[in-house]
Design a protein around this nucleic acid. Structure first.
Length: 755
DNA sequence: CGTAAATGTTTTTTT
DNA sequence: AACATTTACG
């Protein structure tokens, strides 16, 4: 096809786009900010723009870098561009930040003192290493939990602060201790030729900053950079883009970012919403395009979403609208407990399926992964096919991590974390003591752990049984390594590992259903490896295939395993739901303390929780049902009495069909003298006590009476009680006469009145 | 050194 | 409730 594309073919790339979408697609050189409300077709814009750039000859495929949030999104985007263009998209870089960084580091890591075979640590590997550092530094592991310390370290890394910079920026004993751990952790990672997730970004930033010629090369390569979900980028990613796009204003800086400040929900992992808010200041010549027409949901759902987000301060003003119709009201349903909630949702799903709805059109969202269990139990019992996204991920299962660690240590003999994982799995009689001796010997001698283990007699203090066992183990490993070096396919190598190390035998001897499941998981991993072999077979130049395989799977997220149109109901957290859409959505567990999560309430990050609610609502295309339970078991322990989420009170009452509200609430509110009762009809009563007045939701806070110690009170459900304490934040402690229990209640919301 | 019981910890969200 | 880690004992 010649460069000069016929006008009609260009026109076809713009077909069906609205005005602002079209403007974004045809935008020429220079920075571009696309503020894209939920469901406004931002992926479509990205896909069409990439195709347009190529079709008009503004860029060749190899000059495009398109960053997406998940691997799956990348794959979909690549496919859609391919369909538009009708030719190969292989040369394009369409991937996540992390995948792009790995690819760059495969070439550039040696400049930073790593080999190309560097190992990538996931969070649990990193946590183990932090724990080792804590132990070695004799830090009180009660006050410094590995997870908390790792969070601090990760936070620092997201802000591009190395251990020195971190130390200088923070004061206090606690932070100084963390600086010590950070320093040691980083040194050990490097000495083990390993990087954690944050290092992938930071090391690319380092390479680009330290080596101007490398920077120039990548800047020249990526003539057009496009970034999706820009509101969830962190500082390291921000800096990375700056380096790749070129921070010299005289250069074209063809950086297009797409995002929605209203959907920023990852600040806990360092995402910085100011990246998108300040884009105009950072790139003064930036053109801004706003996408506000929504193609996904009906007006009821959009109005609800708009109303929710309006409760946040500091938004870039946006109002979603649609030319679709009103749609049904949003159902808000109260249930007795989480089991009733499960039965209700599954019952509704059964009804829909009977009416001919496909299960794959239905999704269930929740705030925390733990909430999926009850839903799963109910779905299994009613024999409804479902898939869960998130939670325990495939690559985090113990047996998978073991197998992966075996492959890792074959390629990277310095990786102490992997060595530790596999040396006594299955049992070989090499316990904590022997292992510690080998590790400290390796550290003293400054040699890789592999070398130390190869010569067990050279390890001081090692018992004779351990020497023998370790020797046999290393014979097996050396044998396997030799075969890897011969270039045996990864799938075959993995199979050999599982057999010859005795790993599979040990599982088979367990003869439990659990072990059988693990064996099946391992078979699946072998399949994944064989697919990889198959896909790379035509690339004879590829070296270190095992390491490439490992680096590739270490970046697979659970969100990438989602399957569409397979006749299954989909369950996931609200975070995982971002970017997706479903005709029918159930949002469960909308209670104070669950959603918004209690920690968000404590930490005062309610606006982010509200954005999460906004994300949840805007996933729904035509039907949205929100449920909350009156009580819910936490930690499998005592039931927790939760009040309806404050976000429910923010939904306009005329958009809502409230169902199942139990008796008592309305009565208590009336007794408290709530003003202006209205729209009672929209709150259909659930049999018994009559619906709660709408106004109580809107005005509840100001109508609340104040309580003092010793006040006699009546609770709609628990009966007579006495106030035994008043805490901050409108919380009162009440001891109830009926069962002698003491409960903390929120005076503003709880159905209690003074006697 | 390995096992089993006891104890502790976890539930925010994830590339 | 489920899981990881520590402790006690054989």
């Amino acid at each position: 096809m010649p460069d000069a594309a016929p006008a009609d073919r260009l026109e076809s790339l713009l077909d069906g786009l609205n005005e602002p979408q079209r403007a974004a697609v045809v935008h020429g050189e220079g920075p571009l900010l696309v503020l894209a409300g939920a469901g406004s077709g931002k992926t479509r814009v990205l896909v069409h723009r990439i195709a347009f750039l190529i079709r008009t000859g503004q860029a060749r495929p190899g000059e495009i870098l398109a960053i997406t949030f998940t691997n799956k999104a990348a794959q979909e985007m690549r496919e859609r561009v391919g369909m538009l263009l009708g030719h190969s998209t292989r040369a394009m870089w369409v991937m996540t930040f992390h995948a792009a960084c790995v690819r760059i580091l495969r070439s550039e890591a040696p400049r930073l003192g790593y080999t190309r075979q560097f190992t990538i640590y996931d969070t649990s590997d990193s946590r183990r290493l932090v724990k080792r550092c804590l132990d070695e530094l004799d830090v009180d592991s009660k006050r410094f939990t590995p997870a908390a310390v790792l969070n601090q370290i990760s936070d620092a890394k997201n802000k591009l602060r190395d251990p020195d910079a971190y130390r200088q920026l923070v004061g206090g004993y606690y932070e100084q201790t963390i600086a010590d751990v950070y320093e040691r952790y980083q040194a050990q990672l490097h000495s083990m030729n390993a990087m954690d997730f944050d290092d992938l970004l930071n090391n690319v930033v380092n390479v680009l900053q330290l080596f101007p010629e490398v920077r120039a090369r990548y800047q020249a390569t990526f003539r057009h950079i496009l970034v999706d979900e820009y509101q969830d980028t962190n500082h390291a990613q921000y800096r990375l883009l700056q380096l790749l796009a070129g921070d010299d204003p005289s250069l074209p800086r063809n950086l297009m970012v797409v995002g929605d400040d209203g959907q920023s929900v990852y600040s806990f992992r360092g995402a910085d919403i100011s990246n998108i808010l300040n884009f105009q200041d950072d790139y003064q010549d930036a053109v801004t395009v706003k996408l506000e027409q929504n193609y996904r949901s009906n007006q009821t759902i959009l109005s609800a979403a708009n109303a929710i987000i309006a409760h946040n301060r500091a938004q870039i003003p946006k109002t979603l609208w649609t030319d679709q119709g009103e749609g049904d009201p949003i159902v808000v349903r109260e249930l007795e407990d989480e089991h009733a909630e499960g039965r209700y949702v599954v019952g509704e799903i059964e009804r829909l399926v009977e009416e001919g709805v496909s299960r794959s059109e239905i999704a269930i969202f929740y705030r925390t992964n733990a909430q999926s269990r009850v839903m799963e139990d109910t779905l299994v019992r009613r024999e409804i096919a479902y898939q869960v996204i998130g939670g325990t991920k495939f690559y985090e299962r113990a047996e998978i991590k073991d197998a992966v660690s075996y492959l890792t240590i074959l390629g990277n003999g310095q990786d102490v974390v992997s060595f530790t994982r596999v040396v006594n799995s299955p049992r070989r009689g090499i316990g904590q003591t022997s292992l510690s001796r080998v590790i400290s010997h390796a550290q003293t001698m400054g040699i890789p752990i592999w070398e130390a283990a190869e010569d067990p007699l050279g390890v001081p203090g090692l018992g004779s049984a351990a020497v023998k066992s370790l020797g046999r183990f290393m014979d097996t490993m050396n044998n396997l390594r030799a075969r890897m070096d011969e270039g045996v396919p990864v799938g075959d190598l993995l199979e050999a590992v599982l057999h010859e190390t005795g790993y599979l035998d040990a599982l088979e001897n367990e003869r439990s259903i659990e072990a059988q499941g693990r064996i099946e998981n391992l078979q699946e991993l072998v399949e994944v490896a064989r697919e990889f072999d198959h896909a790379t077979a035509e690339d004879p130049e590829l070296e270190d295939t095992v390491d490439v395989f490992l680096q590739q799977i270490s970046l697979v997220a659970d969100a990438d395993t989602r399957e569409d149109d397979t006749g299954m109901v989909t369950l996931m957290t609200l975070h995982n739901a971002k970017g997706l859409e479903y005709p029918i959505v159930y949002l469960i567990g909308c209670e104070e303390g669950v959603f918004p999560h209690s920690r968000s309430i404590e930490e005062g990050t309610l606006e982010e929780e509200r954005r999460l609610m906004y994300v949840g609502i805007t996933r729904a295309m035509r039907s949205l049902t929100i449920s909350h339970a009156r009580r819910r078991a936490v930690f499998g322990g005592a039931p927790n009495y939760g009040l309806p989420s404050r976000f429910l009170a923010e939904l306009p009452t005329d958009l809502v069909d409230r169902q199942g509200t139990a008796s008592g609430w309305g009565a208590a509110t009336v007794a408290a003298g709530a003003p202006r009762p209205r729209a009672m009809s929209s709150w259909s009563s659930g049999g018994g006590g009559g619906g709660r007045s709408a106004s109580a939701w809107d005005e509840g806070q100001q109508a609340a009476p104040s309580f003092r110690m010793g006040d006699d009170v009546v609770h709609a459900a628990f009966g007579d009680g006495v106030v035994t304490g008043v805490e901050g934040g409108g919380v009162v402690v009440v001891r109830f006469a009926s069962d002698g229990s003491e409960r903390k209640l929120m005076a503003d919301y709880a159905p209690i009145t003074k006697k």
